[in-house]
Design a protein around this nucleic acid. Structure first.
Lengths: 153, 153
DNA sequence: TTCAAGGTTTAGAACATTCTGAACCTTGAG
DNA sequence: CTCAAGGTTCAGAATGTTCTAAACCTTGAA
């Protein structure tokens, strides 16, 4: 068993963590690597070599991450190939309030089915709906506050 | 193709939504049903009949949901079998800040690997870490605020 | 223009998850 | 005690996901 560089090991571990959040392991490794690699922008070939994944996985993964806005393509004049780096705000996008919106919508649809907020048996849906509606509105404000406070200092 | 009652259809749709958040479809259907069913507490047999799932899926699903704290067992004196109902705060638990904690920890481990907050190339990790640390602290406060405001009125 | 490196696509092998059906256990009514 | 309804467990079929390898396409240096 050959020894593993700490950077490589970190990418492996990130793969595990991100898998537990619904991302394919290989793509999680890409994210982990792009979080700590030096230099920050690397070609697909370099990443392939660093992580021991197939070219196919790296290509597919980078495209997916790019689509999700987590990774950007970077031109490196004078060097062959395409380079990728983590988007500056990459994992902050994953905080997404979309999930809360989805839940709130599901509760609203439930309220329709049972006959509105005041129908008998609607408490379950009403309470849950109100909670998610609150978070849905307040979480973006919270994030905005973070950026405001951070920007000032 | 036989017509589907709106309640049953709602459970089916909830199954789809919750699947997209990483829950098995059958378990999502259980949650959907328990959100709108009347009466609110039902036996496994009733749920099995209502949703057309196997006894095995219903039994396993209810156990899992119970373990996750989303569903409670209820005694119904005089009636056969075990009854289940949605936990009052069921889906509010799913708001969990555990995810943010996990991310923050991953970033901290990354900072260790690259040599600390001030190491070259550590900005990526540092910015992400600070963001998640902020949400990790503030989201529980936000939830607490919701309950306080809600409790007063 | 040629060629090699880099990147993309895709079929399918390897793997993991989900769900059911059937055997089994438990409980309470009669 | 007996029996039937309710519940649990588990092996395996059905399904879905992930990853690779190999064929293919693209690009730029010489």
């Amino acid at each position: 068993m050959t020894e593993l560089a700490p950077e490589r090991r970190y990418a492996e571990d990130a793969g595990l963590v991100l898998t537990s959040m619904g991302m394919p392991q290989a793509y999680g490794k890409l994210m982990g690597w792009l979080l700590i690699c030096e230099p920050a922008a690397q070609s697909g070939a370099e990443i392939t070599a660093a992580l021991g994944l197939s070219k196919g996985s790296v290509s597919g993964g980078l495209r997916m991450l790019e689509t999700a806005g987590l990774v950007h393509r970077v031109a490196m004049p004078g060097r062959r190939g395409t380079f990728f780096r983590m988007a500056p705000d990459a994992l902050m996008r994953a905080a997404g309030s979309e999930k809360f919106t989805q839940f709130r919508e599901l509760m609203d649809r439930g309220l329709d089915v049972v006959g509105g907020r005041d129908a008998p048996g609607a408490e379950r849906l009403r309470e849950t709906r109100d909670f998610y509606a609150f978070i849905e509105v307040e979480l973006p404000k919270l994030i905005e506050r973070y950026h405001r406070e951070r920007g000032e200092t």
